[in-house]
Nucleic acid binder design. Structure first.
Lengths: 193, 193
DNA sequence: TGTACATCAGTGAACGCGCGTTCACTGATGTAC
DNA sequence: TGTACATCAGTGAACGCGCGTTCACTGATGTAC
């Protein structure tokens, strides 16, 4: 415990970063309604009273946390490379399923976010659009429209598979969902090469 | 208002059905944490005080509502027919996206349900297993393993596409996600026919 | 058939509890002189 | 260089509020006689 921690302006930015980091992880792990502001502040090493010095509301923090999370996802090497097959192989690993807090925002919070306020959904819409553009260029096939369809359909399959794999209470079925989806996507790609 | 409504045992079953129906719809529309027990009872035409005569807890009702919802989904004609392509065309319609309350449970509540208690997840796991078995038989291709992979991967794509289409705040992008996924799934099927 | 009574679905008030949010206060920061 | 003071990040107590749940009560049901 840093009892005499400085409270300068420089350290405020550090606190803010810690809050956003904790929120991005805890929201994905437990859902938006499954984690309290107090729990987030605690995970950031602060008390809940300091919250309004950084954010107007929990929704405001949610928007910031998602903004950071999608930006971080866009920096994942497999995605930066742009190869759909490589990305799918990375995305569909059991390690991703078991670490929702550091994983895909859409697979972790998707159904809750469809009911989120406009500001939150807008952040995610732009992230989706960018993702599709990146993938479309590297998708198999030569017809641009078909490439884009493959990019969108493949990503939908990844997100859906992760959602379903996390619901399954049988480890065997959960693993199978991930493997089968990867096989399905590979086959769909190979057919067009 | 049926002021002098009978309160016989026969009518209790009717009340229970009304509660489960309302819950199945409202949970899917607003999320589990987005609807209160009082709101469900109100939608069923009752007051919240009568709730414990029918269910032990909100979670108990959730399990019952999901059980009914997945059973109803299994009776959808396009699914009973077993043809994957027909089912995808039905599933991926904008009307489904815009009527979450009557639609697929996994697309409406998927990410919340992954954090649900074991009893709830078990109901859904069995529903998934059945869905895969039904689809696998009619999936394109002749290798049973590949057929099963196609069944699982295709359904994952449908669920994922619906989740993403509901997040998108741009109607154009939302429609495109549904159409592109359908095109992608058709192409994946055609390649194997 | 008629009457007394036990049952229990449903009512509406009330109960704790946890939550998001607010606020008076503390004390280190860093500026003014 | 020192000293007085304004600022403000962070603390911890407190605020309403809505929620899931509980409960004394009502009155129709339907059985016992």
């Amino acid at each position: 415990m840093e009892i005499f921690m400085a409270k300068s302006q420089a350290h405020k930015a550090e606190s803010r970063r810690a809050i956003v980091d904790a929120a991005a992880r805890l929201f994905r792990e437990n859902g938006v309604d499954g984690v309290s502001v107090a729990a987030i502040m605690d995970a950031a090493g602060l008390t809940h009273g300091g919250f309004p010095r950084h954010f107007d509301s929990k929704q405001d923090l949610l928007a910031e946390a998602l903004k950071q999370a999608v930006a971080a996802s866009a920096r994942v090497p497999a995605l930066a490379g742009g190869d759909l097959g490589t990305y799918a192989a990375t995305y569909l690993r059991p390690e991703h399923r078991d670490a929702a807090g550091e994983g895909c925002v859409f697979a972790a919070l998707g159904t809750e976010l469809s009911r989120a306020p406009a500001a939150v959904r807008h952040v995610l819409t732009q992230a989706m659009a960018q993702q599709f553009n990146r993938f479309a260029a590297s998708a198999p096939g030569d017809d641009p429209e078909a490439q884009r369809a493959a990019a969108i359909g493949s990503w939908a399959a990844m997100v859906g598979a992760m959602v379903l794999a996390r619901i399954a209470d049988s480890p065997a079925l959960s693993d199978e969902i991930l493997q089968a989806t990867q096989r399905f996507l590979c086959a769909a790609g190979d057919d067009r090469d």
